[in-house]
């Protein structure tokens, strides 16, 4: 379960996130949508215990990300936007290293790594160096490391960006599967991308949550008729125009 209560994050004078609140329950996949620079990555970094909020509280499975950071991190799987991986390791080496760092018992490690390799569909490449894999497969390995320790909470920052349509569909079903046992929060700057696979959508713009609900609910919140295109809902909620990343 993810709980975000009145979280604000300020970088110097710039306020990246303002008074953001939402929650994600176990068994739920929630899409976190907003234009570039809206504060998605900042919110996710706060949840990943990488930085404390300036104000407000974020909890992972009930543990405060600041005061009980170690307990929170033990229950957290996180995939940053750039999909950082150690390119000199093979998929199997990398996943078993991550499993060990995240307290998967030694007796269970090899078995769990094989399970995850199968679950993310990388059996063929299990013993290849990550540096030689294509972007799509790296993304799968990235998701693999996020679920290797069976965390209560999984946070995925733009997991489908840079993938081709077939890969996106596969990624979506992968994430839906993960969502059965975990609380999943995934971000995207494209509403249609998350409208399909997610139970609920939180829309963020200029650091504030502007809508939270199912697609019909946020369509209504945008003041549009049901069945309106996802683009028009997105634009109505966030307005247009480019903004710089904080």
């Amino acid at each position: 379960m993810i709980e975000v209560e009145n979280v604000s994050k300020r970088y110097g004078d710039a306020e990246a996130v303002r008074d953001v609140s939402f929650r994600v329950d176990t068994g739920e996949v929630v899409g976190f949508v907003g234009p570039n620079g809206a504060g998605k990555t900042t919110t996710m970094k706060v949840l990943a215990c990488l930085m404390p909020p300036t104000a407000g509280i974020a909890r992972i499975a009930g543990f405060d990300t600041v005061d009980h950071s170690a307990d929170a991190r033990r229950r957290l799987g996180y995939l940053p936007e750039s999909v950082p991986l150690y390119t000199d390791m093979t998929v199997r080496q990398y996943l078993s290293y991550m499993a060990a760092l995240r307290d998967v018992p030694k007796a269970r490690r090899a078995e769990r790594v094989s399970e995850v390799i199968a679950a993310v569909g990388t059996e063929e490449y299990a013993d290849r160096r990550i540096g030689t894999l294509s972007k799509g497969f790296r993304q799968r390995v990235g998701i693999g490391q996020a679920v290797i320790h069976e965390p209560a909470v999984v946070i995925l920052d733009e997991p489908t960006s840079g993938l081709d349509p077939a890969q996106r569909i596969e990624m979506r079903s992968l994430i839906t599967n993960i969502g059965r046992e975990h609380a999943v929060l995934l971000s995207s700057h494209i509403l249609s991308e998350v409208a399909l696979g997610c139970d609920r959508i939180v829309v963020i713009d200029r650091g504030r949550v502007v809508a939270d609900g199912t697609l019909p609910e946020i369509t209504a919140a945008a003041g549009l008729a049901e069945g309106s295109s996802t683009e028009s809902v997105f634009l109505a909620l966030t307005g247009t125009g480019e903004r710089a990343e904080p």
Partner: peptide
């Protein structure tokens, strides 16, 4: 630079 530090620091490691 690669961002892998974020993965290390979001793991339960001191």
């Amino acid at each position: 630079r690669l961002g892998t530090l974020d993965l290390l620091l979001s793991s339960p490691v001191s």
